[in-house]
Structure formats: C-alpha cells, structure tokens
C-alpha cells in the first residue's frame, strides 16, 4: 500500500508545479480607463482587464492575477511587485471571460516609462490538467507626475509656515534666555573672586593665597634675612 500512496503524493506534487501557458487558452488585455490609454499618474489606481478565452474542451479555473513593474532597459530588473489577487472563476469550454485587476504604484517613483508584465494563473483538473500561467500584458506604460489638489497645496503651505514659526519661536526663546544669563553675569557681585583682581600686594605675607602651593617657587626673602646677609 505504501508505494501506491507515495506515487499519489508525487502526482499531486507534479500537478502543483506551474507548467506555463496552456495551448487551449488565449489571452488579451485592455486598459479600460481613457480608452486603452497607457499614460497614468503616479499613485493613482490602474485598472487592466484580461480577456481569457477557453478554446479547449475542458473547463479551466482562473486562480489569480498578478503584475510587476520592470526596468524598461533590462526587463529582468523588477522595480515593484504588485499583490496577487486571488480569483476562483470557472471558465467553461468555448467560453470567454473578462477579469479585472487593479493596482496602485508608489507615488514617489520617478515619472518615466516602465515595463509592465501582468500574468494570469489558472488550473485544470483531469489527466492533462495542472497549473498554468500566461502573460497577458508585456509592454511599456508611461507615468506622469501626480496631480496635487489645491487642498494639499494649502495644507503644505500652512504646515511649512507653522514649522517655520515654531523654529523661530524656539530660537527666539533660546536667544532671550542667553541674553538674560549674560546680563545676570555682569550684574553679579563676585567680591574678591576671580583672576582679574591683583593679589600682588599680599606676596610674602601669611595671607598670600599662593603660599606653599608651589614648592619649587623661590620664596621671597624676608627683610630681616636680607639684613643678616
């Protein structure tokens, strides 16, 4: 019994593997907004409709659609991958269906041409069945700068003005505080503290603040010793 069970698992594993496009399916695409115009504003919703035609004699099940934005000069470089939209649409033999896929681009992207690859995933039961995939759009689309509304501009200006005001207020406060401190310093009575006051007249007396501080320093000779010499 065990080898038979193993074989079944293997068959299932083979079926889950994506094999590429089915010869019984043909796909088409259209951008319904502005009558298939391929120029969009950055950050706006982009709709693409996939036309899926089942030309075979067995039903297919459309399981998902996804799309990627590619670098136009090197289509192996992926700029942005869009979320895979799951579907569960059964397409009967000889039936044609239309599938809508919507995605949003990053509004901070550079406004320029990009490659777009959109792909549909579908499966079929039965002996010749399995999982299939088909690229239904592989071309260039153009992005333009997003249109900013008046409200946005007004809000931006107000925010800038508020930020400038706040910075100015903080700077002004700090400057005032510093000025106050400085004036306080000049007004403070420090008495005999500080190095600006001359203590020369105390030299050689017991009140000399430098007395005994530097042993190498030559002590001034007292007038009595001078007389002895």
């Amino acid at each position: 019994d065990e080898p038979a069970a193993d074989a079944e698992v293997k068959t299932t594993a083979t079926k889950t593997f994506v094999v590429g496009p089915s010869p019984h399916v043909s796909v088409y695409s259209i951008f319904p907004k502005n009558n298939n115009n391929k120029t969009f504003h950055l950050g706006e919703r982009i709709d693409i409709v996939c036309g899926f035609a089942n030309n075979g004699d067995e039903a297919f099940n459309v399981t998902g659609v996804t799309a990627s934005l590619l670098w136009p000069y090197d289509l192996s470089v992926y700029i942005q991958n869009f979320t895979r939209q799951p579907y569960n649409i059964e397409v009967q033999p000889k039936e044609h269906i239309s599938i809508l896929y919507s995605f949003w681009t990053d509004p901070l992207m550079e406004p320029r041409d990009f490659g777009l690859a959109a792909r549909v995933y579908y499966s079929q039961d039965g002996e010749n069945g399995g999982n299939f995939t088909h690229v239904f759009y592989n071309g260039t689309i153009v992005f333009e700068e997003a249109e900013s509304s008046d409200y946005q501009m007004v809000f931006t200006y107000i925010a800038l003005l508020a930020a400038t005001g706040l910075i100015g207020y903080v700077l002004f406060n700090q400057a005032t505080n510093l000025g106050n401190k400085k004036t306080k310093k000049t007004k403070t009575e420090r008495g005999t503290e500080g190095s600006t006051i001359s203590e020369e007249w105390l030299e050689g007396t017991a009140a000399d603040p430098n007395r005994g501080k530097s042993p190498n320093k030559k002590r001034p000779t007292s007038p009595a010793k001078e007389r002895q010499n």
Binding site: V49, G51, S98, L100
Partner: peptide
Amino acid sequence: ATQAHLIVH
C-alpha cells in the same frame, strides 16, 4: 487572433 475578440468591463 484572426477573428474578433471582445473584452467587456
């Protein structure tokens, strides 16, 4: 496609 094909949105 050599024939007509319609997409309906």
